[in-house]
Amino acid sequence: MEQKFYQGLALRVRDMADRADPFTRRRLLDLAKRYDAKGDPSSRSGASERPLPQSRTPPLTSIFSGPGEA
């Protein structure tokens, strides 16, 4: 189902590119290629996805972590 979604987007973007100026046409066609790649089931692999960035902040420590008075 996701494949058809991206193929539909690529088709619509190409249709818009047909009516656009040369600069916009080139950008829209590049976008359509990216949609085609997302919709192509043979291009699916875990290596193509970027990993999440490492956190730069240290983990938060709780102010309630030590022995406390009740």
Rank of each mutant, 00 (worst) to 15 (best):
S55P: 04
T61G: 03
S62D: 15
P51Y: 01
E49S: 02
K38H: 01
L52G: 04
P58L: 14
E49N: 01
S55K: 10
E49G: 04
T57S: 08
G66H: 02
G39C: 07
G66E: 03
G46C: 04
S48I: 11
A47L: 11
S48F: 02
K38T: 01
P41G: 10
L52H: 05
E49V: 09
P51C: 04
Q54L: 15
S45R: 15
D40Q: 03
S45V: 05
P67G: 04
T61E: 13
P67F: 06
S62H: 06
R56Q: 12
T61D: 07
R50K: 13
S43A: 13
F64N: 09
S42Q: 14
S43H: 06
S45E: 01
S45T: 14
S62K: 03
P51F: 00
P53E: 12
S65Y: 06
G46V: 05
Q54V: 09
S42N: 15
I63Y: 01
S42G: 08
P59L: 09
K38R: 12
L60E: 09
P59I: 04
R44D: 10
T61C: 07
L60S: 07
S48K: 12
F64T: 08
P59K: 14
P53D: 12
G66R: 09
A47E: 14
P41L: 08
E49W: 10
L60D: 05
S65E: 13
F64C: 00
G46S: 13
P59E: 13
P59T: 07
G46H: 02
R50M: 12
P58W: 07
G39Q: 10
P59A: 15
K38I: 01
S55T: 11
T61S: 11
P51E: 10
P59Y: 03
P41D: 04
A47S: 13
P41Y: 08
S55H: 05
P51N: 04
R56M: 10
E49L: 10
G46I: 06
Q54I: 05
I63G: 12
P51R: 13
P51D: 02
I63K: 09
Q54H: 12
P53M: 05
E49F: 13
D40K: 03
F64I: 00
S42C: 00
L52Y: 10
P41S: 14
S42Y: 03
S48C: 05
P53L: 13
S45D: 15
L60N: 01
G39S: 07
I63S: 08
L60G: 03
S42A: 14
Q54F: 12
P41A: 09
P53T: 11
S43F: 00
S62C: 06
S55D: 13
S65P: 02
S48A: 13
P53I: 03
S55E: 09
G39A: 01
G39R: 02
P58I: 03
S55L: 14
